Amino acid sequence: MLKNKRLESRRKKISKDVELFVERSFDIVDRIHFILQKQGKEQKDLAKALGKTESEISKWMTGTHNFTMKTLTKIEAVLGEPILQTVKQDNAEVKQKKIEVTESVFSMPSSEKRTSLPMQFHTLFTGECEPRYYA
């Protein structure tokens, strides 16, 4: 198959986040289509259940719509099946690095480098809201 050089050049410049966004968007639409088909429903049924127009649902289902979590949870509630699944971790499995805080200077135990404590950390650890700068 003959490939357009300009198009291929543009594809190579697409950032990873844009690639992932498009991929996830199509995954979501594919999942919704699958559930509708499995339940013997059509897009118009989804539109009616959500109180939307058929044309709006049709636009969503092109694969380029930026779904909000609120919209996705409404769709899940109407269809009675999950669209997205998250990975939950047990707190015992999560290992956190400890931060050593001394005189508003912190360091990671695995590093010899020391850095001035950013304002948000200074406020968090000391409760003081006025900016302080340490040399």
Rank of each mutant, 00 (worst) to 15 (best):
L79F: 01
T68N: 03
P82M: 06
M1N: 11
D30R: 13
P109H: 02
V78P: 02
V78Y: 05
T102C: 10
H65F: 15
K70Y: 13
I99D: 00
R31I: 01
S110W: 05
S111G: 00
A49Q: 10
Q120F: 05
N66I: 12
G51R: 02
G40D: 01
I75M: 04
T115W: 15
K98P: 07
I32Q: 04
G80F: 08
K97Y: 13
I28P: 07
D27F: 07
R132A: 10
L20V: 14
Q89F: 15
S116F: 06
T123D: 02
F34R: 11
L7V: 11
G51C: 03
R11C: 10
D17G: 03
T102M: 11
F125D: 07
F125E: 07
V22N: 07
K70D: 14
K59M: 14
N91V: 04
F34W: 10
L2R: 15
E42M: 10
V18Q: 15
K98A: 07
K41T: 04
T123V: 13
V87W: 12
L79G: 09
K48T: 07
K3I: 10
F26N: 14
K70A: 15
L20Q: 13
D30G: 06
F67R: 07
F21I: 03
H33V: 11
M119W: 12
N66L: 15
H65Y: 14
R24N: 12
M119I: 12
V22P: 00
K44L: 14
N66R: 13
H122Y: 06
I57K: 10
L2V: 15
V101P: 08
F125A: 02
D90A: 10
V22K: 13
S25Y: 08
M119P: 06
S25F: 00
K5I: 14
S107C: 07
S15P: 15
K52P: 04
M61Q: 03
K13H: 14
T71S: 07
F125K: 06
L7H: 05
M1K: 12
E56A: 11
T71G: 07
C129M: 02
F67S: 05
L84T: 08
E103P: 05
M1C: 11
V101M: 10
L124G: 03
E76W: 00
E56T: 06
S15I: 09
P82R: 04
F34I: 07
K52F: 04
R10S: 12
V87H: 14
V105A: 00
D17F: 05
A49G: 11
N4H: 15
K41F: 04
Q89I: 10
S25Q: 02
H33W: 12
I57M: 08
Y134C: 08
E76Q: 08
T68A: 03
D17Y: 04
W60K: 11
T123C: 09
D30S: 12
E112L: 12
K38F: 09
E81A: 09
N66S: 15
E8D: 13
L84N: 01
R114I: 03
K13M: 13
L117N: 09
L84M: 11
M108P: 02
P109C: 05
Q37G: 10
D27A: 13
D45C: 05
S104Y: 04
N66E: 15
S116L: 02
K59D: 12
K41V: 09
K52G: 00
F26R: 15
K98Y: 09
K44Y: 14
L36T: 01
V78R: 14
P131G: 08
R114F: 00
E128N: 06
S25E: 02
